[in-house]
Amino acid sequence: CHSECLGNCSQPDDPTKCVACRNFYLDGRCVETCPPPYYHFQDWRCVNFSFCQDLHHKCKNSRRQGCHQYVIHNNKCIPECPSGYTMNSSNLLCTPCLGPCPKVCHLLEGEKTIDSVTSAQELRGCTVINGSLIINIRGGNNLAAELEANLGLIEEISGYLKIRRSYALVSLSFFRKLRLIRGETLEIGNYSFYALDNQNLRQLWDWSKHNLTITQGKLFFHYNPKLCLSEIHKMEEVSGTKGRQERNDIALKTNGDQASCENELLKFSYIRTSFDKILLRWEPYWPPDFRDLLGFMLFYKEAPYQNVTEFDGQDACGSNSWTVVDIDPPLRSNDPKSQNHPGWLMRGLKPWTQYAIFVKTLVTFSDERRTYGAKSDIIYVQTDATNPSVPLDPISVSNSSSQIILKWKPPSDPNGNITHYLVFWERQAEDSELFELDYCLKGLKLPSRTWSPPFESEDSQKHNQSEYEDSAGECCSCPKTDSQILKELEESSFRKTFEDYLHNVVFVPRKT
């Protein structure tokens, strides 16, 4: 048989008469490798580009789960590009990614509803959504962080984005990388972005840091009482949809009607710091009717980097990364020049730590249904340095008659930039024990000054392991946590139920 035959053949030295091919099969003959313009397919066939392209389009058009959109890589027609490569849609070739590779997620039936953290986790790592997304989240724990972890990498949506009755959302900033909504599939009414009845939605994105392009379709905003109209108009300008909307697409009466839409800028007039305090004062603000001013709200939190936005980490279910302080308005003076500047002394802060701070007014709604208010920009203030805590785990070892090696770990709280350490030492008198000992005694162990690591005695271990207080009263049991108490109650309830079950099964009433 021919060298490319495997198993047997019907005619000697003829690659077209093989029972099976050793390498690849091409047009009725066995070959060692697939010549151009053919590609290896499933490690035994040679196919042309049209064959591989037909497989790709067949799966793409069917949208069946589990099928493969075949691509070409290293002269092979394979189910998908290997790690580190992405497909070129024009020629199906796998090309190296520039940075992290995109991950295209194809949605069944063309859309997916995100109504819980669990459903959001199914899209973790996706960068391109081939379909439409509907966000409908009523509640949950730590929602802002969970949504950002699972949806934060999405850069492109081919269909539309719909935010509907998501009472738990305060902001859409968890879509931190969303840059493009194509609108290839539109919501009824030709809408590519749809926001309806979101009672706590206050911000779409921080438009000073976020760009969003909507290729096709219109915007729809109705019944978002805490979303200011200025935020919607800003989205029109940034996304390129200005002029597409009709009169009733953006409701003037049901958007922002319960919001404090600040239209003035508060400026800080005085800032002073110490290692654990920050004193702030800002310019006074009074609405047209000074009785509408209820006070100020001061927001602050630790910020290692200057990239904080107002609604980071917030949701309507209680999660809030900001510390909020309510401040009463100052006494009002008739003389504008003698107006008191409101302020606040922030206490209990960490030394040498940068804080993000902003302040906003708290006002009631005027009778004319106009909203007044003022808010400052987010500023960054760093507390002063102070003395560091003591170095940890000092170790001293003498390696000769004239040297001592000293080692330690950095302090747990540096409280500033540590530039150097101060080492103090003092000579001590020799131990009298060394002169009084009889060095001729056998088995004498000389006193040693070398360091030995501390260890816990058996008594201390027994005390720590004991669940009861000892007789001397030195140790006591740790208080039980809520989960331990709940577990004990469940076990007790189970024992009672099981005992009742045994009584009912074992003891049967005697027939009379």
Rank of each mutant, 00 (worst) to 15 (best):
A356Y: 02
D312K: 05
L349H: 00
Q354K: 14
F175Q: 00
L265V: 12
S319P: 14
D326R: 09
E237N: 10
V397Q: 12
W322K: 00
L392I: 10
F175L: 11
A144I: 03
I137N: 07
L147I: 13
T361I: 01
Q258W: 05
R202K: 10
H233I: 06
F221V: 10
Q382N: 12
E283L: 09
R347W: 08
F290P: 04
P351R: 11
A144D: 07
N255K: 06
N248C: 15
F299R: 10
G125T: 05
I232L: 13
E146A: 11
F221G: 05
N340Y: 10
N387I: 12
I163R: 01
L280I: 12
K409L: 07
D292M: 01
W408K: 06
E155K: 06
W408M: 01
V325M: 15
S338W: 13
S158T: 10
N200Y: 05
S166D: 07
Q216V: 08
L362I: 09
L172R: 04
S260A: 09
C317E: 15
Q199V: 10
G125A: 08
A259F: 04
D257C: 03
I129C: 12
T273F: 11
T353S: 12
G373C: 00
Y305F: 14
L349N: 01
W282H: 02
P391Q: 01
Y194C: 15
S166N: 14
L227D: 01
T353G: 01
R347H: 05
D289M: 03
S119L: 06
G152S: 10
N255C: 10
N224M: 10
L180G: 10
E262S: 03
D367T: 07
K301G: 04
R244H: 07
V324Q: 06
I214A: 05
T386G: 04
R247K: 12
R164T: 07
D276R: 06
P330L: 09
D292S: 04
E237C: 15
G295W: 12
A356E: 06
T361Y: 00
H233N: 07
N340W: 12
T118P: 03
A251F: 14
L227A: 06
R291C: 02
I154T: 07
L108W: 15
G240Q: 12
S338T: 14
P288I: 11
A145L: 12
T113E: 07
E302D: 10
I250A: 10
Q258S: 09
L107Y: 12
F299C: 02
G159I: 01
H341I: 12
I181R: 01
L293A: 00
Y300Q: 15
I379N: 03
E302F: 12
I278A: 13
Q314E: 13
D367Q: 15
S396L: 07
V359E: 00
D335K: 11
S321F: 14
E262N: 00
S319Y: 06
L219Q: 04
T185S: 11
S171R: 11
A149E: 10
G373P: 05
I405N: 09
N399P: 15
G343C: 09
G125L: 10
L294S: 06
K209Q: 06
K209V: 11
A149F: 12
I378M: 14
W344Y: 09
G125K: 07
L133K: 06
Y355L: 00
F221C: 13
T273V: 15
L362V: 07
I137F: 05
E262L: 00
I135Y: 01
L107T: 14
P391I: 04
I154Q: 01
P394F: 04
A149Q: 13
Q121I: 04
S132A: 03
S401K: 12
D377G: 05
R347K: 11
I157A: 00
E109F: 13
I250P: 12
P330K: 12
F221N: 04
T371K: 02
S401P: 10
W286Y: 02
S389L: 06
I114Q: 01
A385M: 08
E236I: 04
N334I: 13
N150H: 15
V381Q: 11
T361K: 00
D249K: 14
K301F: 03
E187C: 07
N263D: 05
N136L: 05
D328L: 06
S119Y: 07
I188G: 08
L180P: 02
K177Y: 11
K226N: 04
S132L: 01
I327A: 12
L266R: 01
H106K: 11
S376N: 03
G217S: 09
A356S: 07
E302M: 13
C126A: 01
Y160T: 08
N198W: 02
M235Y: 15
F174P: 07
N190G: 13
S116D: 01
W207T: 04
D312G: 15
S400L: 13
P225H: 03
Y194H: 14
I114H: 02
E156V: 15
F220G: 15
S321H: 10
S173H: 09
S333M: 07
L196C: 07
T241F: 06
A120G: 08
H341R: 10
T215H: 09
E236P: 07
Y160L: 10
I404M: 13
D292G: 03
S132T: 11
T371E: 07
G110K: 05
F220D: 12
T361N: 02
R291Q: 05
I214R: 08
R272L: 13
Y380P: 01
L107K: 03
I378S: 03
E156I: 10
S173K: 13
T185C: 08
N141V: 14
I357G: 11
D315L: 13
T118R: 12
C228H: 02
L298S: 05
F221T: 08
A316N: 13
K162M: 03
G243F: 13
M235K: 01
L123A: 07
C228R: 00
L123W: 05
V324T: 05
K301S: 05
I378R: 09
N211W: 11
P330Q: 11
E146Y: 15
T383W: 01
L147F: 10
I395G: 11
A303W: 09
T323K: 13
L406R: 00
P342D: 09
P351D: 03
V359L: 07
G217R: 08
T241W: 11
L349I: 09
P287H: 01
C317L: 12
E302K: 12
P288T: 08
F175A: 08
W286S: 02
L123S: 02
D367R: 06
K360H: 00
K234V: 06
T113I: 09
